[in-house]
Design a protein around this nucleic acid. Structure first.
Ligand SMILES: NC(=O)c1ccc[n+]([C@@H]2O[C@H](COP(=O)([O-])OP(=O)(O)OC[C@H]3O[C@@H](n4cnc5c(N)ncnc54)[C@H](O)[C@@H]3O)[C@@H](O)[C@H]2O)c1
Ligand SMILES: NC(=O)c1ccc[n+]([C@@H]2O[C@H](COP(=O)([O-])OP(=O)(O)OC[C@H]3O[C@@H](n4cnc5c(N)ncnc54)[C@H](O)[C@@H]3O)[C@@H](O)[C@H]2O)c1
Lengths: 288, 288
DNA sequence: CCATCTTTGTGCACACGTTCACAAACGCAT
DNA sequence: ATGCGTTTGTGAACGTGTGCACAAAGATGG
């Protein structure tokens, strides 16, 4: 089995119209863009083995996709293959790198140097594709001044100056969710136009700013959904059979639920056993 | 602006047919499943504020999606709203939790307790939705025996026993990419049927096993692509104008490239400035 | 009990993404 | 030069996802 869409990691846009305008500007579908890094990784591995050419079939296998899809993806970039032979590995590495904008390097700031921020700062794969950590930033005076991965942690006060001086256009947010929107606003104000958000919050940004998010908890929940299905465990029909009924029956049930307060305690306990730990999920509140 | 598809974080399936079979079994589209955790988060926040009901418009705003989409998503679960009023918050929290399988708890093992593994072990949001860390595992004798987030790091030898004893069905891989496939195979062999992979590798698994991946590097590359577009920086037409030409001209160019060895050194240097650090990307090699 | 107002649930049209399948293009051997 | 085997590039069909727009359902006030 294999679940989910083959598309890239989450973005948080509710507006595919914008996506179209952005990436179809000269014709590369968003789904294709999301796969280019995958191809690039496979190609880089081939390049290191000095493999000169590769067929769509081989490369597709290495990247974990369908070969027809791969060929169509490449067709959006131009005709870089040779019929009867395949693709020139080095040339394709270059073309994809160029298309993704990896022929220049991108300074990045990481804001919130806690557990996750430290891990990211230490991550080698960062630099490997032209992403340079321009600065690590935190608001906590106890953290500021310490070093992570050889870089000093700077205070948030310096954010604007750093972004301006180093022309930083990408920011990574690894603060608690409660601080994420505020940090985001400040990054945007300072001139950052792309944000990668690890905090479980919906960020609001002005037009012209891109946000992508990575959310571990969501991934696990999706896995749990499919896991439950596998167990043949139909989601426990429970007390809700009457909700499948049409008309007045359902309405009555709804009324009852509201009147009774929904049985919050019992259901809440079941749905979120809140083990321990400082639960920091409480900031994804309604903006309006 | 807002880029990308509103879909969930990355899966790595090349086979949407499987997704359909799995999730449309009783009719919930994969795209909807991926949004349910988002709704749940927003609803939980409302619940904590003791808000009794919420309209699709309000909830959609809180979750960062379109209200029509939200209503359609909920319609796959059944008719849980009340026209003229909205949705009962507590009740909806319960229904979504149930649908996602969060009314039971899911023991999880984390394999590879390095930078990232530590961060995940410390992550509070883990337990908050019924995911319990059953064990932390590592192969390095220096790491085994140390504690992370109050839990002891166990040796890989114990994997099978732990998975069996605690009925673990979800595994998280945070090892270097070179070890990921091997660890994955062992997890699957031991009985794990859902895997969340943080290593930048394409994992091959048998039918019946779900894999989702989280890849920071891919996210950054997608952001870079759009960032480049914003800069009006058309991907530097460079030397490839002749590749847009049809017919024999292109063929000749291809031949030349292959003969010349593709100019590996120069282009490689541009495309991957390989700052420093132990580059661990070198395992995404061709499986075939 | 009726009128009015709000909000859901969904039919429909369209956009996007995937896959099939095949003609055209190319390398290579003869 | 010609023919043969291989592989690309893409037109077309299909499936999935999105968003509009509106009828129907219910709440509420008189
Ligand atoms: N740890 C994980 O594995 C993990 C996994 C998924 C998501 N997350 C999310 O990532 C975020 C960070 O997680 P963590 O475990 O590293 O948390 P953490 O508490 O260890 O680190 C947060 C850091 O942000 C800093 N900070 C707080 N407010 C700030 C502000 N206004 N400006 C700048 N810095 C500020 C804090 O000083 C702290 O150093 C959280 O939102 C968490 O939900 C973490
Ligand atoms: N650090 C990050 O922020 C980050 C971000 C994105 C992706 N990643 C990826 O996550 C993975 C882990 O990154 P990291 O920075 O924590 O690396 P790390 O080197 O700090 O930790 C890896 C751990 O895995 C253990 N390990 C190695 N081989 C193993 C095996 N066969 N079985 C069990 N354990 C084994 C090692 O002992 C080590 O403790 C890597 O694949 C990396 O590319 C890391």
């Amino acid at each position: 089995m294999a679940i989910g869409r083959p598309s890239s990691s989450s973005s948080q846009t509710p507006d595919p119209g914008a996506a179209r305008r952005t990436s179809r500007a000269r014709g590369i579908p968003e789904a294709t863009v999301a796969r280019l890094p995958l191809y690039l990784r496979a190609l880089t591995a081939l390049s290191e083995r000095s493999v000169p050419t590769v067929s769509s079939e081989e490369l597709a296998a290495a990247a974990g996709v369908n070969s027809a899809k791969l060929r169509k993806d490449f067709s959006y970039l131009g005709s870089y293959g040779t019929r009867g032979v395949g693709y020139d590995v080095e040339y394709l590495v270059y073309q994809i790198s160029r298309e993704l904008g990896l022929t220049q390097d991108w300074p990045v700031v990481i804001v919130g140097i806690g557990n996750l921020g430290h891990a990211l700062a230490n991550y080698g794969g960062f630099a490997s594709r032209g992403f340079r950590v321009a600065a690590l930033l935190d608001a906590d005076p106890n953290v500021v001044g310490t070093a992570a991965a050889g870089l000093p942690v700077r205070h948030m006060d310096e954010l604007e100056a750093i972004v301006a001086a180093q022309h930083v256009s990408i920011g990574v947010i690894t603060t608690p969710p409660g601080a994420a929107q505020q940090v985001c606003d400040r990054l945007v104000e300072a001139g950052v136009t792309s944000i990668l958000n690890f905090a479980p919050t919906v960020l609001t940004v002005p037009d012209g700013v891109d946000v992508r998010k990575v959310d571990l908890s969501i991934e696990l929940q999706i896995l749990a959904f499919h896991e439950q299905r596998k167990a043949g465990d139909e989601p426990a029909a429970g007390d809700s059979v009457l909700d499948r009924a049409p008309g007045p029956v359902r309405a009555a049930a709804a009324k009852l639920r509201r009147a009774a307060g929904g049985g919050k305690a019992a259901e809440q306990a079941k749905s979120a056993p809140t083990g321990k730990g400082p639960e920091d999920d409480l900031s994804a509140v309604m903006p309006a």
